[in-house]
Design a protein around this nucleic acid. Sequence first.
RNA 1: GGCGACAUGGCCAAGUGGUAAGGCGAGGGAUUGCAAAUCCCUUAUUCCCCGGUUCGAAUCCGGGUGUCGCCUCCA
Length: 490
Amino acid sequence: MGLRLTNTLTGCKDEFVPSDPQYIKMYACGVTVYDKCHLGHAMQAILYDIFARYLRFKGYKVTYVRNFTDVDDKIIARASQLGVSPLELSDQMIEISRRDMLSLKVKPADFEPRVSEYIPQIIAYIQDLMTKGFAYVGQDGSVYFRVRLKEDYGKLSRQNISELRCGVRKDVETGKEDPVDFALWKVEETPGATWDSPWGRGRPGWHIECSVMASEILGDSFDIHGGGRDLVFPHHENEIAQSEAKSGGTYARYWVHNGLLTVNRQKMSKSLNNFISIEDAVRDYGYELIRFNIYQYHYQSNIDFSAQGFFLGLSRLYSMYRTRQRVIDYMARHDLTPQSANSHPGFHQAFCEAMDDDFNLPRVMVVIQSVLQSQNEIMDKKFSAQNAMELLSLESLLHNILPILEIGLREPQEFFHEIHSRYLALKSLTFAWVTEKIELRMKHRTDKNFAMADQIRDELLALGVSLLDSRDKTSWELSEKALEELILLK
RNA sequence: GGCGACAUGGCCAAGUGGUAAGGCGAGGGAUUGCAAAUCCCUUAUUCCCCGGUUCGAAUCCGGGUGUCGCCUCCA
């Protein structure tokens, strides 16, 4: 069963055939570290992390590279504003970014190169382009890429060079031979962010870094190159132009582009000031809810962030842990151990088919939904050895696939405790108070004084605490309304 | 102005030629002292509009309309 991937280069969902049948090389554009990352960056990082995890799950060896852009106009501007050196600022931001990724349970990529560490290679690369005639020193002393010489320029974004020129493009650099050319090396002298080169002191242009770092680590040609949809043009187009001009061969074989996180349908971005930082998002919603919501959409779609959407996710996540807890209790009661069964073949296949179909996470979520439902169904039935085995195989399946997604892995008790404490604190209530109320109601119930018992239950429900009576005891959880309140207050 | 993507029930969202997944919501049932939770059933003859191709289209083609992204840094 093979993976199929939507390839921006062809515009089709292509069968994915790695150049080496066992080894996949993947590169994803990381962030420019001039400020804290926001939820949109989180979405991208989570997605490519999952792709890498799934490919490994399928048995491939994977090398995954995700870069940090630490040399850039914005970094320089920001650093001078803050009165620190550009690399000091980017050091700080990289550290924060790593912490953010950790808090989202995103595994580090195998390589996380920084532009500033690849300056000699970038210079050599540009020199090579120059000897091949693709690069030239412009009138302003900077080095540019001769776009028109690359005949298939525009093949990724389907842009036509002659049409580009009549665009609303501003600030055309004066040193270029042709307005469509782009900078490889910008000559200037900002302290702390420039290096000596054959063309004078300066720094790398916008797109060269990815080409250089990708080829240094993965080689001239590799399997998957990913990034946000907003990078298709010009960033990825230019990467292809440079890389293929230099190597003469194919650069990335499959181009994957994820959708963007939007707010009121508009892209989440610093400039629109409609962003939420990863730090804030994790604090307010938790990493798991963020991931859970991302999985409701295909990676190519934009995800419109809204509190209402997050509420839906929370109520389903809550429900997931309810089942997780129920399974744990059930296994304890019947003395079952999870290791004693193989992964459920039917659902295992369904999961792989969904992932193989262009990483169709919404379909994966349906599979998980069905697994949980089947577990509940089994536990609703009379106990039998056969049912127990079925339950264990479902459990074994979840143990296999949930670590790829990083959801549903916590101790349910811990999950509930966290969310319940937050809610109770919000309402200035305590666990002890709720327990007291429940015990009081229990007395009324055993006395068959249902009117009083129901009154207490209604009182608690009005506060968002919903009671669940089982044969011997009463437990409680948060009502839908309470969950909604918890999210909407953010 | 150019390029690209998207438009599916009250809401969210899968689905690239074979007769509309799933979730939320709503209604009914099993269960329950009554509830909650859980499970079961029902809830789009139809996929923005108009043409075309085809035995057959949400899916392909042409033309509209609308939304978004890119063409300046952007995941």
